[in-house]
């Protein structure tokens, strides 16, 4: 499955960026192969709607989950509408660490996953 993470630089060892809409880089990771593609965050310089743009990017990548430190109301609504699950970094330091914890089911999920895709 595909996961999108907000990070400060490209690469699977990149340090996390807690800001979803304003983090420098969005990392798209295929958890089956651990291949990581870095994309500049489309919202990083936007005057408004950064979270919406990042959410749209994640939805466009057909990601099943997003991991970040903070989801604003617009990003939350957008990801929820797209049926993308949201998880928090907690005390993870790097993208790899976050994915390992995610796979182990140790990350905290935001919102109610069973309802994603129904409302919004």
């Amino acid at each position: 499955m595909k996961i999108v993470l907000s990070v400060t630089a490209p690469g699977i060892e990149a340090p996390i960026d807690p800001r979803f809409g304003r983090g420098a880089t969005l990392l798209v990771v295929d958890t089956d192969t651990m291949q990581a593609d870095a994309h500049p965050n489309p919202g990083v310089n936007a005057s408004g709607g950064a979270g919406v743009q990042a959410a749209q990017f994640a939805a466009g990548q057909k990601a099943e989950a997003v991991i970040s430190g903070d989801f604003g109301p617009n990003a939350f609504d957008a990801l929820k509408a797209a049926g993308v699950a949201m998880y928090l970094y907690g005390d993870c330091q790097t993208a790899r660490q976050a994915i390992e914890r995610f796979q182990a089911g140790q990350l905290q999920q935001v919102g109610a996953p069973t309802q994603s895709g129904h409302h919004g």
Partner: peptide, 23 residues
């Protein structure tokens, strides 16, 4: 619609098109 909006106030998310009135 999402492409033309300068304020990112409308977004296409998979099979949903969402308006963000605040933006």
């Amino acid at each position: 619609c999402a492409e033309v909006c300068a304020y990112h106030a409308i977004a296409v998310l998979g099979q949903k098109t969402l308006v963000f009135p605040q933006l």
